[in-house]
Every structure is written in C-alpha cells, then in structure tokens.
C-alpha cells in the first residue's frame, strides 16, 4: 500500500505542474484529488465540482454541513469565500461551454487516438459515466492521471477495447513512468522517470510511442 501511495503522490505532483494560476479545474475521484496539495504557493486554482460548486474549498468543523453541501462524490464539501453554488444545468453549461480549463481524471484504457475508456466494463461493472463524458468533451485540457499498467497489463493501448467515454479528447497522459502528449500524429513521449528506460516504458505500453526530440526527465519529488 505504501508503494501505491508513493506512486500516486509522484503522479499527482507532476500533474500539479500542468495547472496555471487562475485555472478552473475539475478533479475526478481518487488520485486526482491529491493534486491540489502539490500546487506551488503562487498558483491558485478554482475547483469545480460538477454537482454544483464553483470554487470548492476546505472543509472545516465550522462549515461542515453534509445534508446541504456535498461534492461530486457525495462527500461533505464546502465553497470558498469567492465560490458559489450552481444548479446542474448551469454546471454542465460551464463544462461543455469551454469554461473549465482542465479536467484531471483516471482511466481504465487510453489509446493512440487520445480516446479514453473509464465508465463501464460490459457484463461486469456499470457504474455509469456521471459527468465524465461531458467533461472530456468540454474541458480545454484533459489530463489522464493513472498508474501506467494494471497488474502489469498495459492500459495505454493502440485502440481501447472497452466502450469509450469520449473519443479524441485526451491532451496528456501522466503516469509514474512518463508524460505522454496526445497529438494528431499519435502519442509522443515528452518526459520519462529516470527510474525507467525508454525501452522499459515502451514495453509497458501497447500503443506506439514517438520519442520527442526534446525528451527530458520528469520532475522528481
């Protein structure tokens, strides 16, 4: 478990470098929720919770009201002093209308075309897409933050085998091994974790990776 936490922290810290001061950001459940703690002091982002918060903020004993204020996971939440509560139609106007700068979420599979699958495993699990399909289509940047493989099996594929959440939507994939940019020409490896070689990264990836001429090492904590 310790190792998993270390890996997730490493990924989240690298994702944090993608965010700019003033960005409106939607975080998926799990790993993405770790990202804000790694933001530098001079970077302030506005967190959007698709159930109806723009400017989600720290929960304290004083503002805690789980009957009236929750986040998109149904957990107790709060708004910052600059924040506001909105209804669902407005919330998704924000999403589809291009007013969300970045969405950060996990994936079951991502492919060479920048398509993502993360909402259903037919016959086994069908949790539903919630707001993910809208977020993937509407957010300006779509960052998939996930462990590079699942039990050793590649998750970055030539083509997704599970039903898509959205197609041609992912802008960047960040894992414990590397950073990959999704481009019209395919997946480009731009940064690598020096604990691994480029060959090891390609071996853990079914999709073909083009190595950027400007390849550099990933941020290290």
């Amino acid at each position: 478990m310790r190792e998993k936490e270390r890996v997730q922290g490493f990924i989240a810290a690298r994702v944090a470098k993608e965010l700019k001061d003033g960005d409106v950001v939607n975080l998926g459940i799990g790993l993405p929720t770790l990202v804000p703690q790694f933001l530098p002091e001079n970077v302030h982002v506005t967190l959007h919770a698709e159930n109806g918060i723009i400017g989600a903020g720290p929960l304290t004993d004083k503002n805690r009201d789980p009957i009236h204020v929750v986040d998109a996971g149904g957990k107790p939440a709060a708004a910052t002093i600059e924040g506001c509560f909105i209804d669902s139609a407005t919330s998704f106007s924000l999403v589809r209308g291009g007013h969300v700068d970045a969405t950060i979420l996990g994936g079951l599979e991502v492919d060479e075309e920048g398509s993502l699958a993360n909402w259903i495993i037919p016959g086994k699990k069908m949790p539903g897409m919630g707001g993910a399909m809208d977020l993937l289509v509407g957010a300006k940047q779509v960052i998939v933050a996930m462990e590079h493989t699942a039990k050793g099996n590649p998750k970055i594929l030539k083509k997704c085998r599970l039903p898509y959440t959205a197609v041609h939507c992912v802008t960047k994939i960040i894992t414990e091994m590397c950073v990959i940019e999704c481009t019209p020409e395919g997946l480009v490896l731009t940064e690598y974790n020096p604990e691994y070689t480029v060959e090891q990264i390609q071996a853990a990836t079914e999709a073909n990776l083009k190595v950027s001429p400007a390849l550099k090492t990933m941020y290290r904590i």
């Binding site: 069908m126 897409m129 399909m133 959205a166």
Partner: peptide
C-alpha cells in the same frame, strides 16, 4: 445511463418546450 450534462439539459429541454438537445457529449460512444 445518460451523461450527466445531457440528462440535465434533456430535462431542461422538455421544461422549456424544446424538441431536443444538440450536444457534443457522447459522440463516438
């Protein structure tokens, strides 16, 4: 199952007297 933004807007459409919603959400899925 429907995408959350589509679900909200499809309900809004009926309530607003509209014949449907044109959304980029769900294309290719």
């Amino acid at each position: 199952l429907l995408p959350q933004g589509s679900f909200a807007e499809m309900i809004r459409a009926h309530g607003a007297g509209l014949g449907g919603v044109l959304t980029p959400t769900g294309v290719g899925t």
